[in-house]
Design a protein around this nucleic acid. Structure first.
Length: 1006
RNA sequence: GCGCGGUUAGCUCAGCGGUAGAGCACUUGCUUCACACGCAAGGGGUCGCAGGUUCGAACCCUGCACCGCGCACCA
């Protein structure tokens, strides 16, 4: 007998097997393989981040899909990498440098030095999350690890930029943007979250210039922006005010300005809501998005009063100058009060946009930024299956063959969208996210892609400087003209126009000769340049061109992830084999940030969708339902959990708790359950080993667990017990259920099935019943049951492998199954062992598996449960052996009796077809027959009596329910035959139970 | 305001038209020769509320309430 430890010790085996997989290059994807492809790209975590529970959930699912696909015989690419995460990383490094006292501001270091420090930081911390993913067991192809600022990746970003620029989809303009006064950069709309904020609504009056002594009252939440007001707006349909349109009011602030400088017009604009406040709106085009639009419609001037840092500037006037915007709000209100203009101030709650990352209110601000008009938006919008009523196209049950893909349900293009043409469809899981996606796609706004940061992809655009005159100008033009086919795009205005209304030509489009009448020195010429033109860039810079200082939004690189990581723009073997990817697994929180944009980029640059299925995980919360966050301290470190319980335990526990489409309330108990389950599996295998078998002469296997027994090969159908047949049928059912779960991406269903099958069906019933064979003397029978066990375990381990890869690999080797398989199909590693197929009819008839066996064992188990209940009711301690008398209803075998004896913990089970119960004999009856427990005067009769009374009550109640239905003429008339039969059967069953319980009670009372 | 989820046992969830289920927690008994990270037995639910459809509703429809989320936003 080999010595294997009593409890599974994951720490001892996880590292070993991960290294084994790496050494064997089992994760490496071969684009030349003849196998069908399965691919998935990792949502790249922040390069300097650490593993969170969200990553665990996300990556466990990806690993499950990847490992399952390998077992299905696919060539699998799971492509890993990290994201440079512009703001997040820069902020962390900046904060660290400030903390250490090294700098006060990043300007102290300067751009180049600062970037050096970020790269250093990245080198130092960048590997952490990758190492953590390895601890989790992630089977990524690490030879292909990518980073969104790799040289090749950067080339992709620049190429994409230049292409979109050429198409006129990327443009620069002065617009109202979401400005973050903390990080000093513009943000996209998606980076702004609305938060409810308590504040005040201030009512102040302004005098109408043309009618001295008459006033308008305005309600505002932001009195500090009054100095920036350039109009007052009313709704032209508002009878109260319409007649005032065209007149002027005197703006109260800044107080020190002369009256004529504070005259602002009253304008009419439909935007104004009659109902709100007083129906009069102050218009601050420089600091409010809606006001900016009003300003544009009415050609209003803009007055900026708040600077980039959120402080009031000179234009705000003497009272407010230099104050923080929130402080200024109070001061402005006080000032209004002093002036006698403040009528009232009432508490008010409104929604304010916050910078998601810096958690400060954003300041709408006019600034020069780069924007992208989304490409391929129509295709992207229409490719996602919108889960309508026309659902019957989707097959409900899983394919019965284990060889074909059972995930990645593909649905025909035309079933639901007749007008959609030949676009293949992408599926979202759960489907409801498709609506969210569609809605967002329907309201696309141009994307502000520039960030005033240093860490990121610098915008590859050079612009002429002020010294760009005379011969330099001529040289530049010649130079650009010569380079026009080398991945550059040049724009200059065809006429003198304002910057905000560009009328640009691109060098290689229609009109190539610049208009000689243009005042060259006064216009801006832009050159967008792809990577690889360093020489050109040098020359341009000598000629006075300067590169745009801004960097691109991080997502402007992430949106290329599915193909930029595979070698685009070169049509590599990898792209050919693995694009489009099969599945994407991500959180719904980045559906707009990332998923939608990847779909558009996929169509735009690859001409094809980037993935066929998107699985949206839930969000991990703590057990009180709160989001996990560092500040709450409610986010467990997954590495601690792995150290404590093992990676498999963590994976299994999380998957079990994570139903499709629901948020996950995480509790360490989930992981404990996973640990217990792994231990159960371990011990079940240990039990098998202890039974020995064969010639017991096998050498140690290559794994850790010594195997001193022979795997039992052939199962002899003639020697199969009912229990053997039953467990084979249960295995078959489990395989089918798992295939369905995979087809529907229901991983919690899959783990529930595994748990039930292995723990309840295999361990609790099959193994326990089979002990009657193993502890007996029939060697042939014993060998045959061992063969069944080996068959079941070798299948079970494979079913487990995607979920709990380490322990399944350890046991696969330890049990000797690896030695039993061809090298490329599990001989080396369980990773490539074929995914079990459901049993076909030939298999079933060969082994004589039928529903009858299943029914019999279920009846037998029910019988045993009742027998145990008898014991328990009679207060017989679990360890006390007692005598039972068994009165079989039909044929019975010695084996059956042995099993009864074992599972009832009986001293003996006497078979007596003619037994007549007398007083003080407890009895139960089931399909198998009757079981009697003579009490011999020692036991608690009252307990059994009350149990029987309860049972009688229950039976009577059920009977009356069914009888009521059966006597309802409507029911009898309309009910389908099968349901009617069920009801009749149920009635008979309960009547039977009732009769029995009554007679048992009578026996006790006699 | 619009939309999307959710509301089933103490907790977390499954079930989505024909006898209310699982895991955890709880109670009780067991160191039974794989496993106390275990075994066995058990208690516990008018399926959020109100109507409707149906022979029959946790399940379908309508309304309401509460919780969560997303989008939009009125200063």
């Amino acid at each position: 007998m080999s010595e294997i430890s009593k409890a599974y010790e994951p720490q001892a085996v996880e590292e070993k097997w991960y290294q084994f997989w790496l050494d064997g290059k089992f994760f490496v994807a071969d684009p030349k393989s003849a196998k069908p492809a399965y691919s998935i790209v990792i949502p790249p975590p922040n390069v300097t981040g650490v593993l969170t529970m969200g990553h665990v959930l996300n990556n466990t699912i990806q690993d499950i899909l990847a490992r399952k696909a390998r077992m299905d015989g696919k060539e699998v690419l799971w492509l890993p990498g990290t994201d440079h995460a512009g703001i997040a990383t820069q902020t962390v490094v900046e904060r660290t440098l400030k903390k250490s006292g090294e700098i006060k501001h990043r300007d102290d270091l300067g751009r180049d030095k600062f970037l050096e420090r970020v790269w250093q930081w990245k080198e130092k911390h960048g590997g952490i999350i990758i190492q953590q993913l390895k601890k989790l067991g992630a089977s990524c192809d690490w030879t292909r690890e990518r980073f969104t600022m790799d040289e090749n990746y950067s080339r992709c970003v620049q190429k994409v930029f230049v292409e979109l620029y050429k198409k006129g989809l990327i443009y620069r303009g002065k617009r109202m943007v979401n400005w973050c006064p903390a990080t000093l950069t513009a943000l996209s709309d998606e980076e702004v979250v609305m938060k409810e904020q308590r504040g005040s609504l201030y009512y102040f009056k302004v005098e109408i210039a043309e009618a001295p002594g008459t006033f308008l009252t305005i309600a505002t939440t932001r009195p500090e922006t009054i100095p920036g007001d350039t109009a007052v707006a009313v709704n032209p349909k508002d009878p109260r005010y319409a007649h005032l349109i065209g007149k002027h009011v005197i703006r109260p602030l800044p107080a020190e300005l002369p009256r004529e400088q504070k005259l602002i017009p009253i304008i009419g604009d439909e935007h104004v809501d009659f109902e709100f406040g007083t129906g009069v709106l102050k218009v601050t085009p420089a600091h409010d998005k809606a006001d900016f639009e009003i300003g544009t419609r009415h050609h209003l001037p803009t007055i900026e009063v708040i600077d980039a840092r959120g402080q009031m500037n000179d234009a705000a006037g003497a009272d407010l100058r230099g104050l923080d915007r929130f402080k200024a709000r109070k001061v402005a209100a006080e000032k209004l009060s002093e002036l006698g203009a403040l009528e009232k101030e009432e508490p008010y709650t409104n929604n304010v946009g916050y910078s998601e990352r810096a958690d400060v209110p954003i300041e709408p601000r006019l600034s020069e930024q780069w924007f992208l008009k989304y490409p391929s938006a129509d295709k992207a919008r229409n490719c996602v299956e919108l889960g309508s009523a026309a659902a019957p196209a989707a097959p409900v049950s899983a394919p019965l063959t284990g060889t074909s893909a059972t995930h990645g349900v593909e649905v025909g293009a035309t079933s639901t969208a007749p007008g959609a043409g030949a676009l293949p469809k992408m599926k979202f899981h759960p489907e409801r996210w498709a609506k969210v996606y569609d809605h967002w796609m329907g309201g696309l706004q141009d994307w502000c892609i520039s960030r005033q940061l240093w860490w990121g992809h610098r915008i590859p655009v050079w612009r002429n400087g002020p010294e760009w005159t005379g011969s330099k100008r001529k040289q530049s033009f010649d130079l650009l003209w010569k380079s026009k086919d080398k991945g550059i795009a040049v724009k200059w205005p065809t006429t003198k126009t304002t910057v905000s209304k560009p009328a640009f030509n691109v060098l290689d489009s229609a009109s190539e000769i610049p208009n000689q009448n243009v005042e060259w020195t006064t216009v801006s010429v832009e050159v967008a340049i792809e990577a690889g033109n360093e020489e050109l860039v040098d020359k341009l810079e000598q000629l006075g061109f300067v590169q745009d200082p801004d960097v691109l939004d991080t997502w402007f690189s992430s949106w290329l992830w599915p193909f930029a990581t595979m070698g685009w723009p070169t049509p590599t073997d990898t792209l050919k084999k693995f694009y489009p990817t099969t599945d994407l697994v991500t959180g719904p929180d980045i559906i707009f940030f990332w998923v939608a944009r990847m779909i558009m980029a996929g169509y735009e640059f690859m001409g094809e969708m980037p993935f066929k299925n998107v699985y949206f995980t839930g969000i991990i919360r703590d057990k009180q339902g709160r989001k996990m966050s560092k500040s709450l301290g409610n986010s467990p470190d997954p590495l601690d959990l792995i150290a404590k319980f093992g990676a498999d335990a963590l994976r299994f526990g999380v998957m079990r708790a994570a139903p499709l489409g629901q948020d996950i309330l995480f509790d360490e108990q989930n992981v404990e359950l996973g640990r217990n389950f792994c231990n159960k599996l371990w011990n079940a295998c240990r039990f098998r080993q202890m039974q020995g078998g064969g010639d017991a002469s096998s050498p140690d296997r290559d794994g850790g667990v010594a195997a001193t027994y022979e795997v039992q090969g052939e199962i002899d159908p003639k020697l199969l017990t009912s229990d053997d047949k039953w467990i084979l049928l249960k295995l078959d059912a489990a395989i089918r259920e798992l295939n369905t779960a995979f087809a529907e991406y229901k991983f919690s269903d899959a783990t529930a099935t595994l748990y039930r099958f292995f723990w309840n069906e295999y361990c609790d019933w099959y193994v326990e019943a089979s002990k009657s064979v193993f502890f007996g003397n029939d060697a042939a029978q014993k060998a045959n049951s061992l063969a069944v066990i080996d068959f079941v375990l070798s299948h079970t381990l494979r079913l487990f492998h995607p979920f709990i890869p380490f322990v399944s690999e350890e046991l696969w080797h330890g049990m000797g199954f690896s030695a039993d398989m061809p090298e490329n199909q599990g001989g080396k590693t369980i990773m490539f062992a074929p995914w079990p197929k459901p049993f076909d009819n030939d298999f079933k008839s060969h082994f004589g598996l039928s529903e009858r066996d299943e029914k019999f064992i279920e009846a037998r188990n029910e019988f045993i449960a009742q027998g145990r209940n008898l014991r328990r009711n009679a207060n017989i301690p679990a360890n006390k052996k007692v005598k039972f008398i068994f009165k079989p209803a039909g044929q019975t075998s010695a084996t059956d009796v042995e099993v009864l004896k074992l599972l009832l913990n009986a001293e003996s089970v006497e078979v007596n077809p003619n037994f007549q119960p007398s007083k003080n004999v407890l009895a139960v009856r089931a399909d198998l027959g009757e079981l009697f427990l003579p009490l011999e005067g020692l036991i608690d009769v009252e307990a059994e009596k009350s149990r029987l009374k309860k049972e009688i009550e229950k039976a009577e109640s059920e009977i009356s329910k069914v009888e009521a239905k059966l006597s309802n003429p409507n029911f009898m008339q309309k009910v389908p035959a099968n349901v009617l039969d069920e009801h009749k059967q149920r009635l008979a069953d309960w009547q039977n139970k009732l009769t029995h319980a009554k007679s048992a009670l009578a026996a006790l009372e006699s």
